[in-house]
């Protein structure tokens, strides 16, 4: 008889825990779940709102920002851009909703892990999209300033190519650092949250090799 058979003989004999009554079980049904899926859901909603706010607050709160935006983009380009960004947000909401719906605790362990990982990827792409857009807007903003902003133009006239290089250099460094910091912060959150899931998923995948 091998070790596990010895264990099996004993396994079903033992009652290891006090038996709970219906009275003990009933209140549990109304307790809040602390599962990673629930947390992932809260984070994804927070991500959606965070980026919507980041993108819209300056436009509505700051007159100078609005003026600048209106100058950089012609009316039709601004309308097009706004429609595009809201379409992207709607698309992500749709994708997130779909992937949350596909998470089912009654699936096999492997499939459950895959659906959670897929959901996480949707959020990842949403953040990535926003970071790329932030980078692109920064480039457009700097390009525009260098050609049209009176302050920047006079600064460049005074300092020549060196001044231009300084402005471009600082903007690139600033944008780069910002994007990397946000990305790392994001990786850290999901890394911690899904560490165990990823480890177990790898372990299951290993069985297939």
């Amino acid at each position: 008889m091998d070790e596990l058979d010895l264990l099996k003989k004993d396994w079903n004999k033992k009652e290891t825990h006090d038996k709970l009554s219906a009275k003990d079980i009933l209140p549990m049904l109304n307790k809040k779940s602390s599962s990673i899926v629930k947390l992932l859901f809260y984070i994804s909603v927070a991500e959606l709102f965070f980026w919507i706010l980041i993108n819209s607050i300056p436009y509505f709160l700051s007159d100078s920002y609005r003026e600048r935006m209106n100058m950089v983009y012609s009316d039709s380009a601004l309308v097009g851009l706004t429609i595009f960004s809201y379409a992207v947000i709607l698309l992500f909401i749709f994708l997130l909703y779909n992937s949350y719906k596909s998470i089912s605790v009654t699936d096999s362990a492997k499939r459950l892990m895959e659906t959670i990982i897929r959901t996480r990827k949707v959020i990842k792409y949403y953040v990535l999209y926003n970071l790329i857009m932030a980078g692109v807007s920064m480039i457009i903003g700097v390009y525009y300033s260098l050609h049209n902003d009176p302050e920047a133009v006079s600064f460049i006239e005074k300092t020549g190519d060196k001044g231009m290089m300084i402005i471009i250099g600082l903007s690139v460094i600033f944008t780069g650092v910002l994007v990397v910091v946000i990305w790392l912060f994001y990786k850290l959150i999901y890394g911690l949250l899904l560490k165990r899931l990823n480890r177990n998923y790898k372990e299951l995948k290993k069985l297939e090799v």
Binding site: S33, V37, T106, S108, N200
Partner: peptide
Amino acid sequence: KAYPKFRGDSKFSTWMYRVGLNTAITLYR
């Protein structure tokens, strides 16, 4: 949470094994 979708075409206990293990391995923090 999953009970409304439980159709009874599998045994309740079999269904419990799956949900129990999935919670322990994947969902539980």
